[in-house]
Nucleic acid binder design. Structure first.
Lengths: 105, 105
DNA sequence: GCCGTAGTACGATGAGCGTCGTACCAAATC
DNA sequence: GATTTGGTACGACGCTCATCGTACTACGGC
């Protein structure tokens, strides 16, 4: 029963907090994901970003990013499409994403 | 032996890395310290920022900020004067400090 | 219906971190 | 020299986190 995969919980824009966002960005793997998402600039299947980590670890990082409000994840068939919440982050912390993406590693 | 308090090690500007900086900022106590340092906008004795934490914990946080390259700490008599490394951070990550300081908590 | 694909859930593990108390150190002042 | 003051060093404790493997679920195609 139940037709579709569950919608995953996301914080509303006004519930996004700075410390969790910074914490979400302060990890090399997650930062790499965010940079890839920004480069592609579209919804993307989470798995298409290749990382030297296991599936479960990738899920864990995506959850951290989602719960902090950095990415939005939408079920689509068997896959989940992930995208950066650029508008929300730019509205709340203008320039943060830009500088993090442009910064030298 | 040894006349003065030791100079503490700081990373050069070109050795500052984004992930440690974000990690240093991604803690409520350290973020509060950074905001206070920015508000005062001068060298300040570390202890003059009052926080609901012990002396040793404050030292620990200051070390994290210093090693990441966020603050500079200079011995001065019995005290240590702390200041934000604004110029370095603004040069490396223009806008980062501004948005973090201006952002709602 | 059956299998492959994409991803989550759960439990475990090892490392790191935030916190503290106590002991210690250096400088200034008495 | 003794005391006070501002801060570090060290060890400990508990919690969180990054990582993994395995088991499981949901969807799509055969």
């Amino acid at each position: 029963m139940s037709g579709m995969a569950e919608e995953l919980p996301h914080p509303d824009r006004e519930d996004i907090r700075l410390v969790p966002v910074l914490h979400a960005l302060a990890d090399p793997m997650r930062l790499h994901m965010v940079r890839e998402l920004a480069r592609i600039d579209d919804e993307v299947a989470c798995g298409s970003i290749d990382l030297p980590i296991s599936k479960s670890t990738r899920t864990h990082h995506l959850r951290t990013l989602r719960e902090a409000g950095v990415v939005r994840i939408r079920p689509s068939g068997t896959a989940r499409l992930t995208s950066l919440r650029r508008a929300d982050l730019d509205a709340l912390y203008p320039g943060l994403l830009d500088v993090v993406l442009r910064a030298p590693h």
